[in-house]
Design a binder for these strands. Structure first.
Lengths: 343, 343
DNA sequence: ATCAAAATTTTACTCGCGTAAATTTTGTTA
DNA sequence: TAACAAAATTTACGCGAGTAAAATTTTGAT
């Protein structure tokens, strides 16, 4: 343990018999000092458990080793999963990730961007709220901080976008559903929080047209980020109305589908592809809970790790090239159809 | 916008015609300077959008305005919910919350505690991994940083604990289940990640004894934080074995129950309290998804906001009293029985 | 108008570390 | 073993603020 308390790098350098700047070098890269020096520093570290003051460290640095991660809604385990992978990659690369959730609120997102700017991070991975985002605020932010957008794209903002290819999701589900049974209608929120929803609707319409099938889009009411409840209420309503045009429902995303399945259960509608079933339900995202619904949810899966890895790698490239890239690249990863019991 | 770029508080003070230390005071509390001064500073702020360097700010402060929030597993929306409430309270009170998730990993938890120490936070709200936690690391941490434990208690660590009263959860569910049908058996992981699980088992046993009923504890295998999958696998097994001693299953927590329900669905076991049902299933936590299971899950609910509010208030008291409290208080909040369709 | 108390502002010094430039050490070659 | 370039270390100075104590201004009562 530490007999005398070490207060700063000066004192630590003294007790380890090395000059302070050399100790400073050591903390930035242990391999940048002679082996004998390193050994002595590490011996002293054992005895005195000193750690540099991060505030003093970052004050005089042009670029910190911080990386900001911003997601729109952490109570959605989809983002929990993504964050876990992204944080891991950042730490491996020697960065310090800072996590923020807008919790579905625009004002909060702006506050986050604000405090993120003052952190002078090396870079930021931003999954914006989407429709609810304050575009001007995000644009200003991206001008000052090297930013890669992910999950949800906002045209022209950030130095790059990494996400999933919505067309790939929908084309696979629509193709599968219409090949194995009645063509699906499309179940979505009237005012989706997220631009991905719009792309999915468009993909549905174009896919149906290509297959020569008549599209049906069912728009349900509801605002906010409680998608399950919105899906459930919307589901209860259309099931009560018996207004479904087909026996196959394709939900825009898994969280809506989870709510819809709950409505089916409550309404006594049997979901599945068996002969005794009333309805087939499929969806998109491969939400962490989608395999535990009843019946388990047929869906199209994000390539979580490809998206995470690519987002992080893109950000690292961006940081290395000084915060700007020649052209704003959009990387879209294809989906993988996950066949389960619901369709 | 800003004609000349303002680089530091010195320059900003110059353009606003005030001395730098006064400007410094303003940023710590706008009401601590004369109104005329404030007006001039705010006018300058409009023109030059300057913001103090947080690293320089915190370097010379004995106490920062940061609050650390650590949870064991963010992909669990239970923690997403709690975090949302806690962050809100911290921001209201003028603190800056920093969020960390151990992602179910001890090494990661230790890394977090480590980097948290170097942030010199005013206080930390820590929901430890539990059984997987490195007790020594947590003890050391708590000696250096004012810490309030929440959700999952570790005897004697931190200056206080705030959580839910496990006995209240279990007594209500057991009482309800045994009053309205067969007495429940208790479904849990053989090696629970979390001390709450042990308290719940003990509460089950004592409650059953009090009611003069024979207890049955079913322990399923599995490790890690993928509780749903563990519950599902365990469920599939005992349903295949037909080894259930009663027609009523009380799961230790909702995530296990979600997996168990999925197993029931897959095995064709009808869950609910109706006459045509095979099994009743209930649980504890009121997980955000528990109302969307099929059938919806009867459970005992945490008082989310009471726990969040109390944890934050306790931490504020702790900070105000200089980091130590006379005695380590444990605040436990009772559960509320939520009757849904599954039991 | 006067003056002491209170509130505010300024002076002056500190904090802990980054970093360029100067210096010393190390390793290699002749 | 002398010479010398490369690597490592030290010297010396700066960063952007916090903060105690001194100086000043404002306030309020007479």
């Amino acid at each position: 343990m530490s007999h005398p308390e070490i207060r700063n790098m000066e004192e630590f350098a003294a007790v380890s018999g090395i000059s302070r700047p050399t100790v400073s070098k050591y903390f930035h890269d242990p391999n940048s000092v002679r082996k004998s020096t390193r050994t002595r520093i590490e011996a002293a570290l054992e005895k005195y458990d000193y750690r540099p003051n991060i505030y003093a460290m970052n004050q005089n640095r042009k670029l910190t080793k911080n990386i900001g991660i911003v997601v729109p809604y952490l109570a959605d385990p989809f983002f929990g999963e993504i964050v876990r992978m992204i944080e891991g990659r950042c730490i491996e690369a020697g960065f310090t990730p800072s996590l923020f959730s807008a919790h579905g609120d625009q004002a909060h997102e702006n506050v986050i961007l604000d405090s993120l700017r003052s952190m002078k991070p090396a870079g930021v991975l931003l999954a914006p709220l989407g429709r609810q985002s304050d575009k001007a605020a995000i644009e200003t932010f991206c001008k000052h901080v090297p930013t890669v957008l992910f999950d949800s794209n906002i045209e022209g903002m950030g130095e790059a976008f990494v996400g999933s290819d919505n067309h790939s999701f929908v084309s696979q589900t629509v193709e599968y559903l219409s090949r194995t049974g009645e063509a699906p209608c499309f179940f979505e929120m009237r005012t989706p929080a997220n631009p991905n929803a719009n792309k999915r609707r468009i993909a549905y319409l174009s896919m149906m047209e290509r297959l020569g099938l008549e599209p049906h889009v069912i728009k349900i009411d509801g605002t906010g980020w409680g998608f399950e409840e919105i899906g459930r209420q919307g589901g209860l309503k259309i099931l009560a109305d018996k207004s479904l045009p087909t026996n196959t429902v394709l939900c825009s995303n898994d969280r809506l589908a989870i709510g819809f399945l709950s409505a089916c259960c409550e309404s006594g509608v049997r979901v599945g592809r068996g002969p005794d079933c009333d309805l087939r339900v499929a969806s998109h995202d491969d939400h962490p809970f989608s395999r535990f619904t009843c019946p388990s949810l047929t869906t199209a899966a994000h390539d979580y790790s490809a998206v995470s890895d690519n987002a992080v790698e893109t950000l690292f490239r961006l940081i290395e090239s000084g915060g700007r890239l020649e052209n704003r690249a959009e990387s879209l990863f294809p989906a993988r159809l996950i066949m389960r019991e619901s369709a």
